[in-house]
Amino acid sequence: MRVTITVNGTVESHDVEPRTLLVHYLREAVGLTGTNVGCDTTSCGACTVLMGGESVKSCTVLAAQADGADVTTIEGLARPDGRLHPVQQAFREHHGLQCGFCTPGMVMAITSLLRENPAPTERDVRLGLEGNLCRCTGYHNIVAAALAASADPESRS
């Protein structure tokens, strides 16, 4: 079947099997490998992208379900002039990443979280990240980065 998805502002149209997961569509059909697969039970959140501006786990969405949707991946988050999004910038300043594998999903989850709750408490951030697993950072600096980013009004965009 043919699906047409706007990915990072670009209209993409590809023939896929109905069983194609959105994450595989993004990685293989579109060729954007920033979004990672970390599990097979919708647990780890490494594959988190924005669909219609909201965080979803792209391993648990069929490409067919995303037909016609607007999807943003880590590759599409920076500003058109190349400036990092405030969440990306905060991750760097606060050492919010080590091996980097969970990072794209974390960044997208936090971006969605800040759109829904622009002034989260630490507890809000921690609960908001319950579906994103990281093995390197102990989450300490990820939470710090999220809280720091929330202070930047641009982080909601």
């Binding site: 959140g45 965080s55 979803v56 989850a109 319950e130 579906g131």
Partner: peptide
Amino acid sequence: IGDPQVRHR
């Protein structure tokens, strides 16, 4: 329920 991503779907 679940986590924010799950609640979005």
